[in-house]
Protein backbone atom coordinates (compact mmCIF):
# COMPACT_ATOMS: atom_id res chain seq x y z
CA UNK A 1 0.00 0.00 0.00
CA UNK A 2 1.48 3.35 -1.06
CA UNK A 3 1.62 6.64 0.76
CA UNK A 4 -0.75 9.39 -0.30
CA UNK A 5 0.75 12.82 0.38
CA UNK A 6 -1.18 16.05 -0.04
CA UNK A 7 0.84 19.13 -1.03
CA UNK A 8 -1.04 22.18 0.17
CA UNK A 9 -0.61 25.75 1.44
CA UNK A 10 -3.78 27.73 1.95
CA UNK A 11 -2.40 30.72 0.05
CA UNK A 12 -2.16 30.46 -3.70
CA UNK A 13 0.93 30.71 -5.85
CA UNK A 14 3.48 29.65 -3.25
CA UNK A 15 4.89 26.72 -5.24
CA UNK A 16 2.68 23.67 -4.62
CA UNK A 17 2.63 22.58 -8.25
CA UNK A 18 6.35 23.22 -8.76
CA UNK A 19 7.17 21.18 -5.67
CA UNK A 20 4.77 18.33 -6.51
CA UNK A 21 6.29 17.95 -9.98
CA UNK A 22 9.91 18.04 -8.92
CA UNK A 23 9.53 16.04 -5.73
CA UNK A 24 7.68 13.39 -7.72
CA UNK A 25 10.53 13.22 -10.20
CA UNK A 26 13.18 13.08 -7.47
CA UNK A 27 11.34 10.26 -5.72
CA UNK A 28 11.23 8.37 -8.98
CA UNK A 29 14.97 9.00 -9.48
CA UNK A 30 15.42 7.18 -6.19
CA UNK A 31 13.59 4.23 -7.69
CA UNK A 32 10.13 4.69 -6.21
CA UNK A 33 7.01 4.34 -8.31
CA UNK A 34 5.23 7.67 -8.24
CA UNK A 35 1.94 9.07 -9.46
CA UNK A 36 0.95 12.72 -9.20
CA UNK A 37 -2.66 13.74 -9.03
CA UNK A 38 -3.61 17.21 -10.24
CA UNK A 39 -6.47 18.00 -7.87
CA UNK A 40 -6.76 21.60 -9.07
CA UNK A 41 -9.79 20.83 -11.23
CA UNK A 42 -10.60 23.66 -13.61
CA UNK A 43 -7.12 25.15 -13.34
CA UNK A 44 -4.94 22.38 -14.73
CA UNK A 45 -1.21 23.15 -14.54
CA UNK A 46 0.78 20.16 -13.39
CA UNK A 47 0.93 18.76 -16.94
CA UNK A 48 2.37 22.04 -18.18
CA UNK A 49 4.98 22.37 -15.44
CA UNK A 50 5.98 18.74 -16.10
CA UNK A 51 6.13 19.46 -19.83
CA UNK A 52 3.85 16.58 -20.78
CA UNK A 53 0.73 18.57 -21.71
CA UNK A 54 0.70 17.20 -25.23
CA UNK A 55 0.40 13.66 -23.98
CA UNK A 56 -2.81 14.33 -22.04
CA UNK A 57 -5.79 12.50 -23.57
CA UNK A 58 -8.18 11.99 -20.69
CA UNK A 59 -8.58 13.53 -17.28
CA UNK A 60 -9.74 12.70 -13.77
CA UNK A 61 -13.41 13.38 -14.54
CA UNK A 62 -13.35 11.12 -17.56
CA UNK A 63 -12.27 8.37 -15.18
CA UNK A 64 -14.87 9.12 -12.52
CA UNK A 65 -17.61 9.26 -15.13
CA UNK A 66 -16.52 5.93 -16.58
CA UNK A 67 -15.58 7.40 -19.97
CA UNK A 68 -12.15 5.77 -19.77
CA UNK A 69 -10.19 3.56 -17.42
CA UNK A 70 -7.74 4.89 -14.86
CA UNK A 71 -5.02 3.27 -16.96
CA UNK A 72 -6.12 5.24 -20.04
CA UNK A 73 -5.94 8.54 -18.18
CA UNK A 74 -2.50 8.13 -16.61
CA UNK A 75 0.16 10.02 -18.53
CA UNK A 76 3.60 8.47 -18.32
CA UNK A 77 6.72 10.63 -18.22
CA UNK A 78 9.52 8.38 -19.38
CA UNK A 79 12.41 10.81 -18.86
CA UNK A 80 12.99 9.39 -15.37
CA UNK A 81 14.67 6.09 -14.51
CA UNK A 82 11.42 4.85 -13.05
CA UNK A 83 8.55 6.40 -15.00
CA UNK A 84 6.48 9.03 -13.21
CA UNK A 85 2.76 9.09 -13.89
CA UNK A 86 0.31 11.95 -13.87
CA UNK A 87 -3.43 11.87 -13.46
CA UNK A 88 -4.40 15.19 -15.04
CA UNK A 89 -7.18 17.48 -13.86
CA UNK A 90 -9.93 18.55 -16.18
CA UNK A 91 -9.60 22.12 -17.40
CA UNK A 92 -13.26 22.61 -18.29
CA UNK A 93 -14.96 21.49 -15.07
CA UNK A 94 -15.30 22.83 -11.56
CA UNK A 95 -14.04 21.35 -8.29
CA UNK A 96 -17.56 20.33 -7.25
CA UNK A 97 -18.02 18.27 -10.41
CA UNK A 98 -16.26 15.32 -8.81
CA UNK A 99 -17.94 13.39 -6.01
CA UNK A 100 -16.02 12.83 -2.79
CA UNK A 101 -16.44 9.07 -2.96
CA UNK A 102 -15.33 8.87 -6.58
CA UNK A 103 -12.20 10.82 -5.72
CA UNK A 104 -11.53 8.54 -2.74
CA UNK A 105 -11.91 5.46 -4.91
CA UNK A 106 -9.37 6.83 -7.37
CA UNK A 107 -6.80 7.62 -4.68
CA UNK A 108 -7.37 4.19 -3.20
CA UNK A 109 -6.67 2.40 -6.47
CA UNK A 110 -3.61 4.56 -7.05
CA UNK A 111 -2.29 3.69 -3.59
CA UNK A 112 -2.59 0.05 -4.49
CA UNK A 113 -0.46 0.52 -7.58
CA UNK A 114 2.11 3.16 -6.65
CA UNK A 115 4.46 3.68 -3.71
CA UNK A 116 3.83 7.41 -3.69
CA UNK A 117 0.66 9.26 -4.61
CA UNK A 118 1.38 13.00 -4.57
CA UNK A 119 -1.78 15.11 -4.53
CA UNK A 120 -1.33 18.69 -5.77
CA UNK A 121 -4.01 20.58 -3.87
CA UNK A 122 -5.67 23.76 -5.07
CA UNK A 123 -5.23 26.93 -3.02
CA UNK A 124 -7.80 27.77 -0.36
CA UNK A 125 -9.53 25.67 2.27
CA UNK A 126 -12.73 24.93 0.39
CA UNK A 127 -14.07 21.83 -1.34
CA UNK A 128 -11.08 21.27 -3.62
CA UNK A 129 -8.64 21.38 -0.71
CA UNK A 130 -10.84 19.16 1.46
CA UNK A 131 -11.04 16.66 -1.37
CA UNK A 132 -7.26 16.65 -1.80
CA UNK A 133 -6.55 15.95 1.86
CA UNK A 134 -9.40 13.52 2.43
CA UNK A 135 -7.48 10.37 1.67
CA UNK A 136 -3.95 11.56 2.38
CA UNK A 137 -1.92 9.90 5.10
CA UNK A 138 0.78 12.56 5.06
CA UNK A 139 0.91 16.25 4.30
CA UNK A 140 3.43 18.74 2.98
CA UNK A 141 2.64 22.36 3.70
CA UNK A 142 4.37 24.84 1.41
CA UNK A 143 5.04 28.30 2.73
CA UNK A 144 6.78 31.46 1.51
CA UNK A 145 8.64 33.71 3.94
CA UNK A 146 5.87 36.24 3.92
CA UNK A 147 3.29 37.07 6.59
CA UNK A 148 0.06 36.08 4.85
CA UNK A 149 1.50 32.80 3.59
CA UNK A 150 2.71 31.88 7.10
CA UNK A 151 -0.61 32.66 8.72
CA UNK A 152 -2.51 30.68 6.08
CA UNK A 153 -0.12 27.76 6.57
CA UNK A 154 -0.90 27.72 10.28
CA UNK A 155 -4.60 27.48 9.50
CA UNK A 156 -4.09 24.66 7.03
CA UNK A 157 -1.86 22.76 9.47
CA UNK A 158 -4.57 22.85 12.12
CA UNK A 159 -7.12 21.47 9.65
CA UNK A 160 -4.76 18.67 8.63
CA UNK A 161 -4.10 17.90 12.30
CA UNK A 162 -7.82 17.67 12.98
CA UNK A 163 -8.06 15.11 10.20
CA UNK A 164 -5.26 13.12 11.86
CA UNK A 165 -2.90 13.49 8.93
CA UNK A 166 0.56 12.66 10.20
CA UNK A 167 3.33 13.54 9.68
CA UNK A 168 2.82 17.02 8.30
CA UNK A 169 6.06 18.42 6.88
CA UNK A 170 7.04 21.96 6.09
CA UNK A 171 8.73 23.17 2.93
CA UNK A 172 9.79 26.80 2.88
CA UNK A 173 9.94 28.01 -0.71
CA UNK A 174 11.20 31.17 -2.43
CA UNK A 175 13.67 32.26 0.20
CA UNK A 176 15.38 35.36 -1.11
CA UNK A 177 18.92 35.05 0.21
CA UNK A 178 19.67 38.76 -0.21
CA UNK A 179 16.68 39.74 1.90
CA UNK A 180 17.51 37.01 4.39
CA UNK A 181 20.99 38.47 4.89
CA UNK A 182 19.47 41.90 5.45
CA UNK A 183 16.95 40.35 7.86
CA UNK A 184 14.08 41.81 5.89
CA UNK A 185 12.19 38.50 5.81
CA UNK A 186 11.09 36.03 8.45
CA UNK A 187 13.95 33.52 8.63
CA UNK A 188 13.42 29.78 8.03
CA UNK A 189 14.25 29.14 11.70
CA UNK A 190 11.55 31.53 12.82
CA UNK A 191 8.99 30.14 10.38
CA UNK A 192 9.62 26.66 11.69
CA UNK A 193 9.38 27.86 15.26
CA UNK A 194 6.05 29.56 14.58
CA UNK A 195 4.47 26.69 12.66
CA UNK A 196 6.14 23.97 14.74
CA UNK A 197 6.15 21.06 12.31
CA UNK A 198 9.19 19.14 10.99
CA UNK A 199 11.08 20.90 8.24
CA UNK A 200 11.63 18.97 5.04
CA UNK A 201 13.41 21.62 3.00
CA UNK A 202 14.26 25.23 2.32
CA UNK A 203 14.20 26.26 -1.32
CA UNK A 204 15.75 29.52 -2.48
CA UNK A 205 14.13 31.97 -4.83
CA UNK A 206 15.72 31.04 -8.13
CA UNK A 207 14.88 32.20 -11.63
CA UNK A 208 15.84 28.75 -12.87
CA UNK A 209 12.51 27.51 -11.45
CA UNK A 210 10.67 29.77 -13.87
CA UNK A 211 12.92 28.86 -16.80
CA UNK A 212 12.40 25.16 -16.22
CA UNK A 213 8.62 25.67 -16.05
CA UNK A 214 8.77 27.75 -19.26
CA UNK A 215 10.58 24.95 -21.03
CA UNK A 216 8.54 22.13 -19.53
CA UNK A 217 11.79 20.59 -18.29
CA UNK A 218 11.53 20.12 -14.54
CA UNK A 219 14.82 20.94 -12.83
CA UNK A 220 14.67 17.72 -10.81
CA UNK A 221 15.82 15.89 -13.97
CA UNK A 222 19.12 17.72 -13.71
CA UNK A 223 20.32 15.86 -10.67
CA UNK A 224 23.69 17.63 -10.87
CA UNK A 225 22.18 21.12 -10.62
CA UNK A 226 21.86 22.92 -7.29
CA UNK A 227 18.05 22.66 -7.29
CA UNK A 228 18.08 19.09 -8.56
CA UNK A 229 20.42 18.07 -5.77
CA UNK A 230 18.30 19.85 -3.20
CA UNK A 231 15.17 18.02 -4.31
CA UNK A 232 16.94 14.69 -4.32
CA UNK A 233 17.91 15.43 -0.74
CA UNK A 234 14.31 16.31 0.15
CA UNK A 235 13.07 13.11 -1.51
CA UNK A 236 15.60 11.07 0.46
CA UNK A 237 14.52 12.63 3.74
CA UNK A 238 10.87 12.03 2.95
CA UNK A 239 11.38 8.39 2.01
CA UNK A 240 13.76 7.49 4.82
CA UNK A 241 11.46 9.07 7.37
CA UNK A 242 8.86 6.62 6.22
CA UNK A 243 11.16 3.64 6.65
CA UNK A 244 12.17 4.36 10.19
CA UNK A 245 8.68 5.40 11.24
CA UNK A 246 7.77 1.79 10.92
CA UNK A 247 10.87 0.63 12.76
CA UNK A 248 11.39 2.95 15.66
CA UNK A 249 11.23 6.53 16.68
CA UNK A 250 14.73 6.80 18.12
CA UNK A 251 16.25 7.14 14.69
CA UNK A 252 13.68 9.80 13.86
CA UNK A 253 15.27 12.09 16.33
CA UNK A 254 18.71 11.77 14.83
CA UNK A 255 17.45 12.12 11.28
CA UNK A 256 15.66 15.34 12.00
CA UNK A 257 18.72 16.68 13.66
CA UNK A 258 20.54 15.97 10.44
CA UNK A 259 17.95 17.72 8.31
CA UNK A 260 18.03 20.70 10.54
CA UNK A 261 21.78 20.82 10.57
CA UNK A 262 21.84 20.72 6.83
CA UNK A 263 19.86 23.93 6.83
CA UNK A 264 21.72 25.19 9.87
CA UNK A 265 18.54 25.36 11.88
CA UNK A 266 18.58 25.44 15.63
CA UNK A 267 15.27 24.04 16.73
Amino acid sequence: MGEAIVITSGKGGVGKTTITANLGISLSQLGFSVVMVDADIGLRNLDLVMGIERKVKYHILDVSKGLCTLEDALVKDTRSKTPVCLLPASQSHFKEDIQKDDFSDLIQSLKERFQYVLIDSPAGIEYGFRLSMKDANQGIVVVNPEVSSIRDADRVISILEQKKIKPIYLIINRVNTELLKKKEIVSPEEIQEILDIPLLGVIPEDYFVVISANQGKPFAYQTQSKLGELFLHIAKQLSSEELFMIEDSIKAESLWNKVKKSFTLKK
Binding site: E184, S187, I194
Partner: peptide, 12 residues
Protein backbone atom coordinates in the same frame (compact mmCIF):
# COMPACT_ATOMS: atom_id res chain seq x y z
CA UNK B 1 14.56 47.22 13.41
CA UNK B 2 14.75 45.09 10.26
CA UNK B 3 11.26 44.20 9.05
CA UNK B 4 11.86 40.46 9.42
CA UNK B 5 11.80 40.79 13.21
CA UNK B 6 8.63 42.90 13.09
CA UNK B 7 6.96 40.30 10.89
CA UNK B 8 7.92 37.49 13.28
CA UNK B 9 6.52 39.33 16.28
CA UNK B 10 3.27 40.20 14.52
CA UNK B 11 2.87 36.63 13.29
CA UNK B 12 3.40 35.16 16.74
Amino acid sequence: MASGKTATQRLK
